[in-house]
Nucleic acid binder design. Structure first.
Lengths: 153, 153
DNA sequence: TCAGTTTCTTGAATCATTCCAGTTTGTGGC
DNA sequence: GCCACAAACTGGAATGATTCAAGAAACTGA
Protein backbone atom coordinates (compact mmCIF):
# COMPACT_ATOMS: atom_id res chain seq x y z
CA UNK A 1 0.00 0.00 0.00
CA UNK A 2 2.77 2.43 0.92
CA UNK A 3 4.62 2.06 -2.33
CA UNK A 4 1.70 3.92 -3.84
CA UNK A 5 2.47 6.89 -1.62
CA UNK A 6 6.12 6.51 -2.51
CA UNK A 7 5.36 6.57 -6.19
CA UNK A 8 3.33 9.73 -5.76
CA UNK A 9 6.12 11.37 -3.86
CA UNK A 10 8.82 10.44 -6.34
CA UNK A 11 6.61 11.77 -9.10
CA UNK A 12 6.54 15.11 -7.35
CA UNK A 13 2.92 14.84 -6.30
CA UNK A 14 1.42 15.40 -2.90
CA UNK A 15 0.20 12.34 -1.11
CA UNK A 16 -3.49 12.63 -0.40
CA UNK A 17 -6.00 9.98 0.55
CA UNK A 18 -7.88 10.49 -2.70
CA UNK A 19 -4.82 10.06 -4.90
CA UNK A 20 -3.54 7.04 -3.03
CA UNK A 21 -6.94 5.38 -3.28
CA UNK A 22 -7.30 6.25 -6.94
CA UNK A 23 -3.88 5.00 -7.95
CA UNK A 24 -4.34 1.89 -5.86
CA UNK A 25 -7.72 1.25 -7.36
CA UNK A 26 -6.54 1.61 -10.94
CA UNK A 27 -3.64 -0.73 -10.24
CA UNK A 28 -5.83 -3.44 -8.82
CA UNK A 29 -8.51 -3.27 -11.51
CA UNK A 30 -7.08 -2.15 -14.80
CA UNK A 31 -8.70 -0.21 -17.63
CA UNK A 32 -11.34 1.44 -15.46
CA UNK A 33 -13.23 4.53 -16.52
CA UNK A 34 -13.50 7.66 -14.40
CA UNK A 35 -16.92 6.86 -13.03
CA UNK A 36 -15.96 3.34 -11.99
CA UNK A 37 -12.83 4.68 -10.34
CA UNK A 38 -14.86 7.31 -8.51
CA UNK A 39 -17.28 4.69 -7.27
CA UNK A 40 -14.52 2.39 -6.10
CA UNK A 41 -12.67 5.16 -4.33
CA UNK A 42 -15.86 6.28 -2.63
CA UNK A 43 -16.27 2.74 -1.43
CA UNK A 44 -13.01 2.98 0.49
CA UNK A 45 -12.91 6.64 1.46
CA UNK A 46 -16.56 7.46 1.93
CA UNK A 47 -16.74 10.59 -0.16
CA UNK A 48 -14.68 12.03 -2.97
CA UNK A 49 -15.99 14.61 -5.41
CA UNK A 50 -16.09 13.86 -9.10
CA UNK A 51 -13.88 16.84 -9.66
CA UNK A 52 -11.22 15.47 -7.33
CA UNK A 53 -11.23 12.21 -9.24
CA UNK A 54 -10.79 13.91 -12.59
CA UNK A 55 -8.16 16.21 -11.18
CA UNK A 56 -6.20 13.36 -9.64
CA UNK A 57 -6.46 11.29 -12.80
CA UNK A 58 -5.08 14.17 -14.83
CA UNK A 59 -2.28 14.73 -12.37
CA UNK A 60 -1.37 11.06 -12.28
CA UNK A 61 -1.52 10.81 -16.05
CA UNK A 62 0.62 13.89 -16.48
CA UNK A 63 3.12 12.53 -13.96
CA UNK A 64 3.37 9.30 -15.93
CA UNK A 65 1.88 7.06 -13.25
CA UNK A 66 -1.22 6.36 -15.32
CA UNK A 67 -1.96 6.14 -18.99
CA UNK A 68 -5.19 7.33 -20.47
CA UNK A 69 -6.78 5.34 -23.27
CA UNK A 70 -9.90 6.33 -25.11
CA UNK A 71 -11.49 3.68 -27.32
CA UNK A 72 -13.94 5.16 -29.81
CA UNK A 73 -17.45 5.30 -28.46
CA UNK A 74 -16.65 4.84 -24.80
CA UNK A 75 -15.47 7.12 -22.00
CA UNK A 76 -11.78 7.44 -21.22
CA UNK A 77 -10.16 4.59 -19.34
CA UNK A 78 -7.06 4.56 -17.22
CA UNK A 79 -4.40 1.91 -16.79
CA UNK A 80 -1.34 1.65 -14.62
CA UNK A 81 0.90 -0.14 -17.10
CA UNK A 82 3.03 2.71 -18.35
CA UNK A 83 6.45 2.87 -19.93
CA UNK A 84 6.13 -0.01 -22.35
CA UNK A 85 4.24 0.89 -25.47
CA UNK A 86 1.83 -2.00 -25.42
CA UNK A 87 -1.43 -2.13 -27.31
CA UNK A 88 -5.06 -2.85 -26.59
CA UNK A 89 -7.81 -5.24 -27.46
CA UNK A 90 -11.31 -3.80 -27.14
CA UNK A 91 -14.56 -5.73 -27.06
CA UNK A 92 -17.17 -4.24 -29.38
CA UNK A 93 -19.91 -5.69 -27.27
CA UNK A 94 -19.12 -4.87 -23.66
CA UNK A 95 -16.23 -2.42 -24.03
CA UNK A 96 -13.82 -4.55 -22.03
CA UNK A 97 -10.15 -3.76 -22.65
CA UNK A 98 -7.22 -6.19 -22.59
CA UNK A 99 -3.50 -5.55 -22.94
CA UNK A 100 -1.39 -6.93 -25.75
CA UNK A 101 2.36 -6.76 -26.04
CA UNK A 102 3.70 -4.92 -29.05
CA UNK A 103 2.74 -6.82 -32.17
CA UNK A 104 5.96 -7.34 -34.08
CA UNK A 105 8.64 -6.33 -31.67
CA UNK A 106 8.29 -2.60 -31.81
CA UNK A 107 9.90 -0.98 -34.80
CA UNK A 108 7.30 -1.66 -37.49
CA UNK A 109 4.55 -0.23 -35.36
CA UNK A 110 6.18 3.13 -35.00
CA UNK A 111 7.47 3.52 -38.52
CA UNK A 112 4.71 4.64 -40.86
CA UNK A 113 5.50 4.41 -44.56
CA UNK A 114 4.79 8.08 -45.27
CA UNK A 115 4.76 10.63 -42.51
CA UNK A 116 3.34 13.48 -44.61
CA UNK A 117 5.84 15.71 -42.85
CA UNK A 118 4.50 14.89 -39.41
CA UNK A 119 6.87 14.56 -36.46
CA UNK A 120 5.54 11.21 -35.23
CA UNK A 121 6.22 10.38 -31.60
CA UNK A 122 3.81 7.60 -30.77
CA UNK A 123 1.93 4.77 -32.41
CA UNK A 124 -1.29 3.57 -30.92
CA UNK A 125 -2.71 0.22 -31.94
CA UNK A 126 -6.20 -0.91 -31.04
CA UNK A 127 -7.61 -4.30 -31.96
CA UNK A 128 -11.38 -4.54 -32.15
CA UNK A 129 -13.19 -7.79 -31.57
CA UNK A 130 -15.47 -9.67 -29.23
CA UNK A 131 -14.32 -10.92 -25.86
CA UNK A 132 -14.73 -14.58 -24.83
CA UNK A 133 -17.59 -13.79 -22.44
CA UNK A 134 -19.61 -11.95 -25.07
CA UNK A 135 -18.89 -14.71 -27.57
CA UNK A 136 -20.23 -17.26 -25.11
CA UNK A 137 -23.27 -15.14 -24.39
CA UNK A 138 -24.00 -14.67 -28.09
CA UNK A 139 -23.64 -18.40 -28.68
CA UNK A 140 -25.66 -19.30 -25.61
CA UNK A 141 -28.61 -17.08 -26.49
CA UNK A 142 -28.91 -18.75 -29.89
CA UNK A 143 -27.10 -16.07 -31.84
CA UNK A 144 -28.88 -13.17 -30.27
CA UNK A 145 -27.77 -9.58 -30.46
CA UNK A 146 -24.18 -8.83 -29.55
CA UNK A 147 -24.84 -5.12 -28.95
CA UNK A 148 -23.36 -3.46 -32.02
CA UNK A 149 -21.64 -5.17 -34.93
CA UNK A 150 -21.07 -2.36 -37.35
CA UNK A 151 -18.95 -4.50 -39.65
CA UNK A 152 -16.96 -1.48 -40.66
CA UNK A 153 -14.02 -3.02 -42.41
CA UNK B 1 -21.83 14.63 -58.86
CA UNK B 2 -24.55 12.13 -59.75
CA UNK B 3 -22.44 9.16 -58.83
CA UNK B 4 -23.05 10.25 -55.25
CA UNK B 5 -26.77 9.64 -55.72
CA UNK B 6 -25.95 6.38 -57.43
CA UNK B 7 -23.85 5.26 -54.52
CA UNK B 8 -26.65 6.05 -52.13
CA UNK B 9 -29.09 4.08 -54.20
CA UNK B 10 -26.86 1.06 -54.56
CA UNK B 11 -26.31 1.12 -50.81
CA UNK B 12 -30.05 0.86 -50.32
CA UNK B 13 -30.46 4.41 -49.07
CA UNK B 14 -32.94 6.99 -50.19
CA UNK B 15 -31.54 9.86 -52.17
CA UNK B 16 -32.16 13.13 -50.39
CA UNK B 17 -30.57 16.51 -50.86
CA UNK B 18 -29.08 16.38 -47.39
CA UNK B 19 -27.43 13.01 -47.89
CA UNK B 20 -26.06 13.86 -51.30
CA UNK B 21 -24.61 17.09 -49.99
CA UNK B 22 -23.15 15.39 -46.92
CA UNK B 23 -21.54 12.55 -48.82
CA UNK B 24 -20.26 14.96 -51.43
CA UNK B 25 -18.87 17.25 -48.78
CA UNK B 26 -17.06 14.49 -46.92
CA UNK B 27 -15.56 13.25 -50.17
CA UNK B 28 -14.23 16.62 -51.16
CA UNK B 29 -12.80 17.51 -47.75
CA UNK B 30 -11.76 14.44 -45.86
CA UNK B 31 -11.67 13.80 -42.12
CA UNK B 32 -14.29 16.39 -41.26
CA UNK B 33 -16.16 16.39 -37.99
CA UNK B 34 -19.94 16.54 -37.74
CA UNK B 35 -20.10 20.23 -37.05
CA UNK B 36 -17.87 21.13 -39.98
CA UNK B 37 -19.91 18.88 -42.24
CA UNK B 38 -23.11 20.49 -41.02
CA UNK B 39 -21.73 23.95 -41.68
CA UNK B 40 -20.55 23.00 -45.15
CA UNK B 41 -23.82 21.38 -46.07
CA UNK B 42 -25.74 24.39 -44.85
CA UNK B 43 -23.59 26.48 -47.10
CA UNK B 44 -24.89 24.61 -50.14
CA UNK B 45 -28.43 23.74 -49.09
CA UNK B 46 -29.41 26.66 -46.92
CA UNK B 47 -30.69 24.80 -43.91
CA UNK B 48 -30.17 21.33 -42.52
CA UNK B 49 -30.77 20.42 -38.91
CA UNK B 50 -27.99 19.05 -36.80
CA UNK B 51 -30.08 15.97 -36.22
CA UNK B 52 -30.39 15.32 -39.94
CA UNK B 53 -26.64 15.53 -40.29
CA UNK B 54 -26.04 13.04 -37.50
CA UNK B 55 -28.72 10.76 -38.83
CA UNK B 56 -27.33 10.84 -42.34
CA UNK B 57 -23.80 10.29 -41.10
CA UNK B 58 -24.95 7.24 -39.16
CA UNK B 59 -26.85 5.89 -42.14
CA UNK B 60 -23.91 6.44 -44.48
CA UNK B 61 -21.49 4.89 -42.01
CA UNK B 62 -23.73 1.89 -41.49
CA UNK B 63 -24.09 1.49 -45.24
CA UNK B 64 -20.32 1.46 -45.61
CA UNK B 65 -20.09 4.68 -47.61
CA UNK B 66 -18.32 6.49 -44.82
CA UNK B 67 -15.98 5.47 -42.07
CA UNK B 68 -16.07 7.03 -38.67
CA UNK B 69 -12.82 7.69 -36.84
CA UNK B 70 -12.55 9.03 -33.35
CA UNK B 71 -9.12 10.19 -32.23
CA UNK B 72 -8.86 10.50 -28.46
CA UNK B 73 -9.79 13.93 -27.24
CA UNK B 74 -11.53 15.18 -30.36
CA UNK B 75 -15.01 14.78 -31.82
CA UNK B 76 -15.73 12.03 -34.32
CA UNK B 77 -14.52 12.55 -37.86
CA UNK B 78 -15.75 11.02 -41.07
CA UNK B 79 -13.85 9.94 -44.14
CA UNK B 80 -14.92 8.53 -47.47
CA UNK B 81 -11.98 6.17 -47.96
CA UNK B 82 -13.55 2.87 -47.01
CA UNK B 83 -12.73 -0.71 -47.86
CA UNK B 84 -8.96 -0.55 -47.48
CA UNK B 85 -7.83 -0.80 -43.92
CA UNK B 86 -5.55 2.21 -43.93
CA UNK B 87 -4.35 4.02 -40.84
CA UNK B 88 -4.21 7.55 -39.53
CA UNK B 89 -1.81 10.22 -38.50
CA UNK B 90 -3.18 12.72 -36.00
CA UNK B 91 -1.69 16.06 -35.06
CA UNK B 92 -1.55 16.56 -31.29
CA UNK B 93 -1.66 20.29 -31.74
CA UNK B 94 -4.43 21.07 -34.22
CA UNK B 95 -6.16 17.69 -34.49
CA UNK B 96 -5.59 17.42 -38.24
CA UNK B 97 -5.83 13.86 -39.60
CA UNK B 98 -3.89 12.36 -42.51
CA UNK B 99 -4.17 8.96 -44.14
CA UNK B 100 -1.39 6.41 -44.18
CA UNK B 101 -1.33 3.17 -46.12
CA UNK B 102 -1.03 0.02 -44.08
CA UNK B 103 2.33 -0.02 -42.37
CA UNK B 104 3.80 -3.41 -43.18
CA UNK B 105 1.59 -4.80 -45.88
CA UNK B 106 -1.38 -5.83 -43.86
CA UNK B 107 -0.91 -9.10 -42.04
CA UNK B 108 1.21 -8.01 -39.08
CA UNK B 109 -1.23 -5.27 -38.23
CA UNK B 110 -4.14 -7.59 -37.76
CA UNK B 111 -2.33 -10.41 -36.02
CA UNK B 112 -1.85 -9.65 -32.34
CA UNK B 113 0.51 -11.94 -30.46
CA UNK B 114 -2.05 -13.01 -27.88
CA UNK B 115 -5.72 -12.56 -28.49
CA UNK B 116 -6.82 -13.42 -24.95
CA UNK B 117 -9.64 -15.39 -26.53
CA UNK B 118 -11.00 -12.38 -28.36
CA UNK B 119 -12.44 -12.78 -31.87
CA UNK B 120 -10.46 -9.97 -33.46
CA UNK B 121 -11.90 -8.50 -36.64
CA UNK B 122 -10.16 -5.18 -37.05
CA UNK B 123 -6.92 -3.45 -36.22
CA UNK B 124 -6.82 0.28 -35.87
CA UNK B 125 -3.52 2.11 -35.95
CA UNK B 126 -3.16 5.75 -35.04
CA UNK B 127 0.11 7.63 -35.22
CA UNK B 128 0.39 10.67 -33.00
CA UNK B 129 2.64 13.56 -33.87
CA UNK B 130 2.76 17.16 -34.95
CA UNK B 131 1.81 18.26 -38.44
CA UNK B 132 4.14 20.37 -40.59
CA UNK B 133 2.06 23.51 -40.11
CA UNK B 134 2.11 23.27 -36.35
CA UNK B 135 5.82 22.49 -36.42
CA UNK B 136 6.40 25.63 -38.44
CA UNK B 137 4.25 27.68 -36.10
CA UNK B 138 6.02 26.33 -33.03
CA UNK B 139 9.40 27.08 -34.60
CA UNK B 140 8.28 30.49 -35.79
CA UNK B 141 7.00 31.58 -32.40
CA UNK B 142 10.30 30.69 -30.77
CA UNK B 143 9.26 27.31 -29.40
CA UNK B 144 5.96 28.37 -28.01
CA UNK B 145 3.32 26.02 -26.75
CA UNK B 146 2.34 23.13 -29.00
CA UNK B 147 -0.96 22.54 -27.21
CA UNK B 148 -0.45 19.32 -25.30
CA UNK B 149 2.59 17.06 -25.28
CA UNK B 150 1.66 14.35 -22.87
CA UNK B 151 4.76 12.27 -23.63
CA UNK B 152 2.85 9.11 -22.96
CA UNK B 153 5.18 6.38 -24.12
C1' DT C 1 -52.36 10.59 -57.09
C1' DC C 2 -52.20 7.50 -52.98
C1' DA C 3 -50.37 4.95 -49.27
C1' DG C 4 -46.56 3.64 -46.67
C1' DT C 5 -42.12 4.30 -44.99
C1' DT C 6 -38.17 6.95 -44.34
C1' DT C 7 -36.16 11.22 -43.32
C1' DC C 8 -36.08 15.95 -41.44
C1' DT C 9 -37.30 19.60 -37.84
C1' DT C 10 -37.55 21.41 -33.36
C1' DG C 11 -36.62 21.11 -28.69
C1' DA C 12 -35.08 18.88 -24.78
C1' DA C 13 -32.09 15.46 -22.54
C1' DT C 14 -27.90 12.81 -21.69
C1' DC C 15 -23.13 11.83 -20.71
C1' DA C 16 -18.38 12.77 -19.90
C1' DT C 17 -15.69 16.35 -18.80
C1' DT C 18 -14.26 21.08 -17.54
C1' DC C 19 -14.51 25.77 -15.32
C1' DC C 20 -15.09 28.66 -11.21
C1' DA C 21 -14.78 30.37 -6.45
C1' DG C 22 -14.02 29.28 -2.00
C1' DT C 23 -12.48 26.00 1.65
C1' DT C 24 -9.47 22.38 3.26
C1' DT C 25 -5.27 19.79 3.56
C1' DG C 26 -0.31 18.38 2.92
C1' DT C 27 4.49 19.97 3.19
C1' DG C 28 8.60 22.15 4.75
C1' DG C 29 10.70 25.50 7.92
C1' DC C 30 10.97 27.18 12.67
C1' DG D 1 3.91 21.05 17.51
C1' DC D 2 2.73 25.52 14.93
C1' DC D 3 2.64 28.56 10.76
C1' DA D 4 2.41 29.93 6.03
C1' DC D 5 2.01 28.72 1.40
C1' DA D 6 0.74 26.17 -2.41
C1' DA D 7 -1.61 22.33 -4.02
C1' DA D 8 -5.79 19.73 -3.71
C1' DC D 9 -10.72 19.20 -2.75
C1' DT D 10 -15.81 20.62 -2.60
C1' DG D 11 -20.07 22.06 -4.68
C1' DG D 12 -22.39 23.91 -8.33
C1' DA D 13 -22.86 25.33 -12.88
C1' DA D 14 -21.43 25.08 -17.70
C1' DT D 15 -19.74 23.13 -22.00
C1' DG D 16 -19.66 20.24 -26.14
C1' DA D 17 -20.83 16.25 -28.72
C1' DT D 18 -24.35 13.31 -29.38
C1' DT D 19 -28.92 11.14 -28.79
C1' DC D 20 -34.03 10.78 -27.85
C1' DA D 21 -38.86 11.98 -28.90
C1' DA D 22 -42.93 13.49 -31.46
C1' DG D 23 -44.77 15.35 -35.29
C1' DA D 24 -44.30 17.25 -40.19
C1' DA D 25 -42.40 16.71 -44.76
C1' DA D 26 -40.43 14.17 -48.53
C1' DC D 27 -39.23 10.02 -51.26
C1' DT D 28 -40.61 5.55 -53.51
C1' DG D 29 -43.34 2.28 -55.87
C1' DA D 30 -47.97 1.08 -57.38
Amino acid sequence: MDNVADDLRSAGLRVTAARVAILDHVRSGNHLDAERIARGVRGSLGHVSTQAVYDALHALTKAGLLRRIEPAGSPARFESRVGDNHHHLVCRSCGEVADIDCVVGEAPCVEPSETHGYAVDEAEVVFWGVCPQCQAQAAGSGGGEPAQTESGG
